[in-house]
C-alpha cells in the first residue's frame, strides 16, 4: 500500500464549499431568485407601508429591513439546504460522492459554507437597501457583537433544519412547494411580515415562540432599531438571553435530526 494518507474532512469540506459556490454562481436563476427576492419584498413592503411607529420616528420600512434580514437567512439556509439536498440525491451527486472516501460531515460542511457565504451576501444587500433607501442608521459596536452571534446561530439552526426537512422531500421538483409551507406560515406568525407581533392572538405567539424565526427577527430588530422599540415586542423586552437559548437549542435539535435523517441514497435501497 502507498504511504499517502487520506485527505481529511476539513480539506474535503473546503473543497466541497468551493465547488458548491462555483455551481451556485453559474446557475443564474438560482442567483436571481435567492438574492433578489427578499430585497424585492423589502422594497415592496417599505413602499406599501410607509408610515412611522407613532412617536419613535422609526419608519415601518426600517422595521421591515430588520425583520427581512431574518427572512433572508431563513430562506437561504432552509430552502437552499432542503432543496439542494433533494437535488443532490436526485441527480446522483450524493451517490457519486458516497463512492469516494469523502465523509458526510465534509459534504455537509460544504453546504454550510455555501449557506454562510450566501447569507453574508444576502444580509449585506438588505442592509444596503435599508441604509440607502430607508435611511436606516447603522448600529454601534456592541450591537454588532450581538449581530455576530445572532447571525451565526441563525444560519446554523436554519441550515440544520433544512437538512433534516430534506428527508421528507421525495422529489426535488416538489421541494420548493413543501419547504415553503412551514417557511411562509412561520413568517406570518413570527413578526416578520406582521409587526408588532402583539396584534396576533396570544396562543399563536406561543406557537411561534417554539420556533427559531420569531427569535431571529426579534434579535435583528434589537440590532438595527433604537432601544425604545422594544415595547412593540411580545414581552416588551428584547430578551437577548432567551434568543440565544432558543436558537442554541434549535442548533442542537437540528443537528440531532440531521444525524438521524441524513442518507446518502434514497431509503428502500
Amino acid at each position: 500500500m502507498t504511504a499517502a494518507v487520506l485527505p481529511g474532512t476539513a480539506h474535503n469540506g473546503l473543497a466541497r464549499g468551493r465547488v458548491e459556490l462555483l455551481q451556485f454562481i453559474r446557475d443564474r436563476t438560482a442567483v436571481i431568485f435567492t438574492f433578489a427576492f427578499p430585497a424585492m419584498l423589502l422594497l415592496l413592503f417599505g413602499t406599501i407601508f410607509g408610515d412611522s411607529y407613532e412617536d419613535t420616528g422609526v419608519s415601518v420600512s426600517q422595521v421591515y429591513t430588520a425583520s427581512m434580514i431574518a427572512y433572508g437567512i431563513l430562506s437561504t439556509g432552509f430552502i437552499t439546504m432542503g432543496s439542494g439536498l433533494a437535488m443532490d440525491r436526485e441527480d446522483g451527486t450524493l451517490k457519486r460522492l458516497h463512492g469516494t472516501p469523502i465523509t458526510a460531515t465534509a459534504y455537509l460542511l460544504g453546504k454550510l459554507i455555501l449557506v454562510l457565504v450566501l447569507s453574508v451576501a444576502e444580509v449585506t444587500l438588505l442592509i444596503l437597501v435599508g441604509v440607502l433607501v430607508y435611511d436606516m442608521p447603522l448600529p454601534d459596536a456592541s450591537h454588532w457583537v450581538v449581530f455576530g452571534w445572532l447571525f451565526l446561530l441563525s444560519v446554523i439552526a436554519c441550515t440544520l433544519c433544512g437538512i433534516a426537512v430534506s428527508a421528507l422531500v421525495k422529489r426535488a421538483r416538489t421541494a420548493g412547494a413543501i419547504l415553503n409551507v412551514p417557511l411562509v406560515a412561520l413568517q406570518f406568525i413570527s413578526g416578520v411580515f406582521i409587526h408588532p407581533i402583539t396584534q396576533l392572538p396570544s396562543w399563536l405567539i406561543t406557537v411561534a415562540s417554539l420556533f427559531p424565526v420569531k427569535w431571529m427577527s426579534q434579535g435583528f430588530r434589537y440590532v438595527f432599531l433604537p432601544d425604545e422599540m422594544k415595547v412593540y415586542e411580545a414581552a416588551g423586552q428584547w430578551e437577548l438571553g432567551r434568543i440565544a437559548l432558543v436558537l442554541g437549542a434549535w442548533c442542537v435539535i437540528g443537528l440531532a435530526l440531521c444525524l438521524v435523517t441524513f442518507r446518502w441514497t434514497e431509503k428502500d435501497r
Binding site: V19, L22, Q23, D91, G92, K95, G99
Partner: peptide
C-alpha cells in the same frame, strides 16, 4: 472506498462544472 472506483449506470450531477 479509497481503493475502489465506481462508474454508476446513470448520473447527471455537476452539470455546471
Amino acid at each position: 472506498r479509497a481503493r475502489i472506483g465506481v462508474v454508476l449506470q446513470d448520473a447527471d450531477d455537476a452539470a455546471d462544472l
